[in-house]
Computed example of a mutant assay.
Amino acid sequence: MTETHATLPPGAPAFPPGRYGRRREPGRRRPLLAALLAIAVVAGLSLVTVRLYRQYGDPNYDAQVITYTGITDSQVLVDFRVTVPEGGSAVCLLRARNRDGAEVAREEVTVTAPPGQRQVTAQHRLVTSARPFIGEVVRCRPPA
């Protein structure tokens, strides 16, 4: 059927017959497709969450930088505190970055807690390839 001014509701645009192809009737919605897409998105986000938790989120190996001092053109002294399982040890990744954010030093340090304690305070000197701006603990993990 062609559209004429008599068959169109008021305010609807009138298209010349045959000019723009066949007009589609309003179709039914596809809830199955939307549900499958939602499930796929949730599954993907869950995988990313698990991976990031394994990489950064183990609460048994929590590290905090207390201070970084002794900044010269070739070093920075990083004081940090690590929470480990009672009497355990951890391997912590320390790094120094320059003012532009580029990494100028990276080193893994093993820290061991005294028997009966969960927290250990450590100090480490990072030798850098350029003048550092900040010293930080990237993460701590159980020793291999």
Rank of each mutant, 00 (worst) to 15 (best):
E3V: 06
E3F: 06
T4C: 04
A6D: 14
T7Q: 02
P10F: 10
A14R: 12
R19G: 07
Y20E: 12
Y20H: 13
R22F: 04
G27M: 11
P31D: 08
P31V: 12
P31F: 11
L32F: 14
L32G: 11
L33V: 15
L33E: 14
L33T: 12
A34M: 13
A34K: 06
A35V: 01
A35E: 13
L36N: 04
L36D: 03
L37R: 06
A38R: 05
A38P: 02
V41Q: 04
V42P: 13
A43H: 12
A43K: 11
L45K: 09
S46R: 07
S46K: 07
V48F: 09
V48C: 10
T49D: 14
Q55C: 02
D58E: 03
P59L: 09
N60S: 14
Y61L: 01
Q64I: 13
V65I: 06
T67K: 15
T69G: 04
T69E: 12
I71K: 11
I71R: 13
T72C: 00
Q75W: 04
Q75L: 01
V76T: 11
F80P: 01
F80S: 04
R81L: 10
V82M: 00
T83I: 13
T83S: 07
E86T: 14
G88E: 07
A90V: 03
L94Q: 04
A96Y: 04
R97N: 15
R97W: 06
R97I: 14
R97P: 08
N98W: 03
N98R: 03
G101A: 02
G101H: 07
A102E: 15
A102N: 14
E103P: 01
E103I: 10
A105Q: 10
R106H: 04
R106F: 01
T110E: 15
V111M: 01
A113G: 05
G116H: 02
R118F: 00
T121S: 13
A122P: 01
R125F: 00
V127T: 15
T128G: 02
S129F: 01
